[in-house]
Every structure is written in structure tokens, then in C-alpha cells.
Amino acid sequence: MAARKPPLHKYWVILSTRTQEDMAYRANYVFGAIFRFLPLVTMIFLWYAVYAGRGMAPIHGMTFKDMIVYNILMYIARGFSSVPGTMSDISKDIKDGLLNRYLIKPMDYFGYQVMYRLAHKLVFWYIAFLTFPFVFWIMSVTGHYFTHWPTLWEWLSFIVSLVVAFCIGIQFCFVIGTLAFWFLEISTFLFVVMMLEFFMSGQLIPLNILPRALHQVLFLSPFGYEGYWPCMILMGKVPQDHLGPVLGRGFLWVGVFYGVVQVMWRAGLKRYSAVGG
């Protein structure tokens, strides 16, 4: 009799097969990695023109160099929090009845999704690990962009905040994807959601330079953890005594999302129907 595998072994198998699958299309990833930096070009020159127009005076405590560093760190933060395709894949599984083949397996559907997406992320992080040091090196040689060296606490908080970013990002996808139990056609709706996420995470504009009323609301929302907070933490823009409360609220959101996903999943499965095999 074959030795019984430990209970979590199946998730390891998913992770490793999916990673290998991704590595098979390396050229795809190289293209993606290069194109990903193109928006940065326009962004740098546009912000430079804005700062030049005001005699290089800082905007809400952000200098021109801060602004550029913020936008580059955003790539790392979003590399953790954005899991493209998750929402639409889940809604498709539900809508087309493909969920059947997962339901009959002795594994958790969301556990499977987490492993599947984590595999994509591993490949991305691997590529990022190779390219980002080069970007940072270019930046510090050409313009001494990094004016702040993070303290130990900031480094640790940054790493924790990236974990929070991933947890919130993927669970938000679960919530939206699971809506497919109740609504038949949600693909255009997904586009709206992703656009709002793009804005509310601080990817478009740092949240602190938005009008006061707006940024105070967005500071409390979970979306800031998908981009804004990790960047600001590493840049030293979050005072040390705020690090705890900021991360604490992040964990609270992770818990809230976990609860919402579980409730929606159970309620949704009661409505779920699929015809044929």
C-alpha cells in the first residue's frame, strides 16, 4: 500500500504543476516584464512637468523623487495584491457549471484558487527579483532617488503589509467572482470594479494628495492595503507609532473578507445549479 500523503500535499502539487506550466512560456513573461515599465515613462515626465510648474515644491510632503519612488514601489505592491483573471475565472466556473469538477474533489475550491494564483505570483516574483535590483540601481545612480533608508521596523512592516496586500487582493476577487451565483452576466461589471480598485488602491494617484474628504474615506477602505500603504510604509511616510494600527486594520480587513467569502460561498452553493456533465 502506498504511503499516505500528508493532507496538505495536494495543494503543493497544484502549486508546483502550475509554476512549471507558467515557466513554459518564458518569452511571454519577458514581454510582459518590459511592457509593464512603459507607463512609467509617461508618468515620470508628466510629474516632472507638474513639479517644474510649481518650482519643485513638495506636494503634501511628497517631493518629485518621492513621487517616482512611490510609483515604482507600486509595481511591487500591486505585484502582490493584483491577481488578474481570478474574478473572471471564478465567475466563469460558476456560470458555466464547471464548478462541478472541483466540488467532487476532496479539496477546498478557494484553497485551490490560492495555490493556482500563488504559482503565477511565484514566477512574477522570481522575475521581479531579477529585474528590480537593476531598476533600483539605475535610479540611485542617475538621480539619487532614494532619500530614505527604511528602518528595521519599516522593512518588517513592509513585508507584513505585502502579505496583507495579497490576502486582501485575492479575497476581494473571491467576493466579486462569487457574485456570479446571483448575477448571470458580470463581465462588464468586473471592468468597473477593477477600475475602481485601480483608483482606490492609490495606483493612479497617491491617496494622500487627493482632496481631504476623499482621502480620509479611502484611508479606512481595504483597498489602500493593495498599494498605497505598502509603498508609504517603505518610504518612511508612516510614523513608527502608526505602523501598528495601520497593519492592525489591514488584518481586520483580511478577517472580514474571509468571513464574507465563507458566507457567500455557502449561500451561493445552495443556489448553484449545473446541467449535464
Binding site: A52, G53, R54, M195, F199, L210
Partner: peptide, 18 residues
Amino acid sequence: VMQFIYIGVMYGQTGQIA
């Protein structure tokens, strides 16, 4: 609308861009 917010925020900081 989002593009206009972006433009609006930038022009909130300076009277002219390039």
C-alpha cells in the same frame, strides 16, 4: 471621469503643465 480626476489633481498643484 477617472482621467479627469487625474488631470484635476495635477492642475490642483500647478497652473500649467509644460
